[in-house]
Amino acid sequence: MMESVVEIFNTGAKYIIPLLLAGIPCYGILRKVKVYEVFVEGAKDGFDIAMRIIPYLVAILVAIGMFRASGALDMFISAVSPVLDLIGFPSENLLLALMRPLSGGGSFGLLSDLVKEYGADSLFAKIGATMFGSTETTFYVLAVYFGSVGIKRVRHALIAGLIADTVGVLSSVYICRFLFEK
């Protein structure tokens, strides 16, 4: 039963990207959008985003690269894993989970490090990408949104945001382990 769920999922997953690549322009054509020109115009942003993330990637990849090379990362992982193993949480994903609510650029850097170190097809990278996609930079969003209208007392917003992040992070771990762990 469990195996067939995973199998159906894997077959379906193959079609998601092709479906979006064909389906969205298809809807655009129906709505009389000049799909080619609009595509090219949107695609230009790819370069800007890459340029914008470079400083964050340099900062984070250098820090995590040094941290790993010195042996400190291994010490950190062996220190936290007895506790994390109890709840089935991979220690390799802990830094990303902690960084995610603080910094979008920083957590993207840590995700890049997981992809570089273990490969995009690894369980750690998949858990990391799911965490990254399913939660937000809570502290930043609260600061920008409340700051824009001058709210000083945020009441329960921060705690609720962090509860949501925690649930998102744990759900990412368990769903990915269910689907991808061999």
Partner: peptide
């Protein structure tokens, strides 16, 4: 090495990001 790799990585992402952002712009405009 990591500093060098960070730039290579970001440059390597440009193509797929451009593809994705182009498609999503169509979603936006339609």
């Amino acid at each position: 090495n990591s500093a060098e790799l960070a730039v290579e990585l970001a440059i390597g992402l440009i193509g797929i990001m451009a593809l994705w952002l182009g498609i999503m712009r169509i979603a936006d405009k339609s």
